[in-house]
Design a protein around this nucleic acid. Sequence first.
DNA 1: TTTTCACATGAATACTTATTCATACGATAC
DNA 2: GTATCGTATGAATAAGTATTCATGTGAAAA
Lengths: 122, 122
Amino acid sequence: MNCNDNDENCRTACFHPDLVEQVRDAMPGEPLQLDLAKLFKVLGDHTRIRILNALYRSELCVCDLTSILGMNQSAVSHQLRVLRDAKIVRSRKQGKNVLYSLDDSHISDLIRVGCEHVQEGT
Amino acid sequence: MNCNDNDENCRTACFHPDLVEQVRDAMPGEPLQLDLAKLFKVLGDHTRIRILNALYRSELCVCDLTSILGMNQSAVSHQLRVLRDAKIVRSRKQGKNVLYSLDDSHISDLIRVGCEHVQEGT
DNA sequence: TTTTCACATGAATACTTATTCATACGATAC
DNA sequence: GTATCGTATGAATAAGTATTCATGTGAAAA
């Protein structure tokens, strides 16, 4: 018998049923886990991380970001859209420009903890 | 003139040069940002988030995880490999089984803060 | 009104990646 | 040794996505 098959035999024989039951009950619901994965997925891109690291320091317009990242404006706008849709950044108009900033403090927390993790090497 | 062109004119005319300079200097180096993006990218998958949420509760063998997630063993192993390579989980053998657990506390921190963010709806 | 400017966006392309299938591997039991 | 069990992995497929190019949009300036 192999755990490949998700049948009843496997469920009671080849592993720790009590523990599995316990963990299954304690886990968050699927919607939350989907949202969580989506959040991290949006954070998990080099360009978007650079945008967030910039906005972490200051509110900036699209053109500022374009210059800081050294990439074309279309690419930056596309990624800003992804970040806006995920409610990770917010935007406001000022004259001809659109100014972007981080939406809330959780984002900076995540970036800070993430940085700590990768800096410690582990 | 448009910021599409990343030429010298654009760099000095159409945005806030001092601010851009300042932010550019304050930003982390590229290697760190690449590592950070990679970390979040690995966290940004539904299956892997479910694995981590399970391991957050208890050390578990592959077969346990297979049962909890209700997916085939190969898929779980593949994702565990990704998590291992990213140093997000660690493994040890016990008899015939391989037991997995979270590698360090930063990971649980990230999951916790991330959960807070998505739960608040922001 | 017409032009210009900063930004947004649709389509296309190239690249990445999650899952499945089949199979391999290493250790234990027989 | 041989069989079995838990886990790992290579190849293939299908789905997702970042970037570029070209163009659209809305507002301000001329």
